[in-house]
Design a protein around this nucleic acid. Structure first.
Length: 294
DNA sequence: GCCCAGGTGAAGC
DNA sequence: GCTTCACATGGG
């Protein structure tokens, strides 16, 4: 039957795949000579970016590719998004430095669990923890010939059956009881993740913060990366640094004031703007000392 | 050794 | 209300 295949090409423009997959939204993508391998739901997939195109390869034939186009948000017009950003020097610099940076739309549970594990961890370490968790508790998925085994992200019910000691053995330290308690609340039906998508942003945030280990920052990450609430604006140490250095240099401004600033200054796609600031600060910091931009 | 990492929750003012 | 601290683990 035509249309059921293991490869497909997509045309795209203004999409920095490498930057997007490594920008601290998702933690499961592996690079191997210009190609990216990952698992989306139960689909193992390998992505080959080309000029103005993207070729995707799966292990087994798939009848449709909506799971992929949705995850990568291929239908989003990036110009339309960046046009809503405030026209100020920091945003212009951040956008110029990260052409084609995108937001993914991830599974809300994987996103929630991953970010519970993210607190005061570097992205490399989050990746290690998540990899261990998937190897030990995730269902194996079919991979292309000669590829290392791959696993789905473990479902809440599976993690709910684990012990705290078992989770700590995945190197997640003090985050283990948070992840376990949250998995149990979801597996038991006490908390309904699907319902979040139907709520106003602020209500959904308040609800998510009822989960153990979830404060405002992690709730905002899940709202933005897992549900697509475009106004959610996660403020981590890097974004805080960006706000202070780029918008309030040399001034003592309270966290609360900065939060209020983020709620009004960045427009309807504030979360998207936030990702540019985050990526800008991180990539700028990893460069050899450069003269500060006025 | 030291400081820091996509923080949170509890305890102390 | 706001500030301080403990919490595991590993990178630079």
């Amino acid at each position: 039957m035509t249309g059921v295949d293991t490869t497909k090409s997509f045309t795209l423009r203004d999409y920095d795949l490498a930057g997007t997959l490594t920008s601290g939204q998702a933690f499961r993508w592996e690079a191997c000579n210009q190609r990216w391998t990952g698992v989306i739901g139960t689909h193992w997939v390998r992505l080959h970016p080309g000029p103005g195109s993207l070729t995707a390869e799966t292990a087994v034939p798939v009848p449709d590719w909506n799971w992929l186009t949705h995850y990568l948000q291929l239908d989003v017009d990036l110009d339309e998004v960046t046009r809503t950003f405030p026209d100020d020097e920091p945003m212009r610099a951040a956008v110029a430095a990260s052409r084609g940076l995108r937001l993914l739309r991830q599974d809300s549970w994987e996103c929630l669990a991953s970010f519970i594990l993210s607190s005061t961890k570097q992205i490399v370490q989050i990746r290690q923890i998540v990899a261990l968790l998937c190897e030990r508790y995730g269902e194996p998925v079919a991979v292309a010939p000669a590829c290392p085994p791959a696993f789905a992200f473990p479902c809440p019910a599976r993690l709910a059956r684990a012990t705290e000691a078992e989770l700590r053995a995945c190197k997640m330290g003090f985050r283990a009881p948070y992840l376990l308690a949250t998995a149990r609340m979801i597996a038991s039906g006490q908390f309904d993740l699907a319902r979040m998508a139907t709520l106003p942003t602020e209500t959904a945030r308040t609800e998510l913060m009822q989960l153990p280990g979830v404060g405002q920052k992690i709730a905002d990450c899940v709202l933005l990366f897992g549900y697509g609430f475009q106004s959610a604006f996660p403020v981590d140490v890097w974004v805080m640094k960006a706000l202070r250095q780029l918008y309030f240099p040399g001034r003592r401004v309270s966290r609360q004031r900065l939060h209020r600033f983020t709620a009004t200054h960045f427009g309807p796609s504030a979360g998207y703007a936030q990702q540019y600031l985050f990526h800008y600060m991180r990539t700028k910091a990893s460069q050899p000392a450069k003269r500060a931009v006025a």
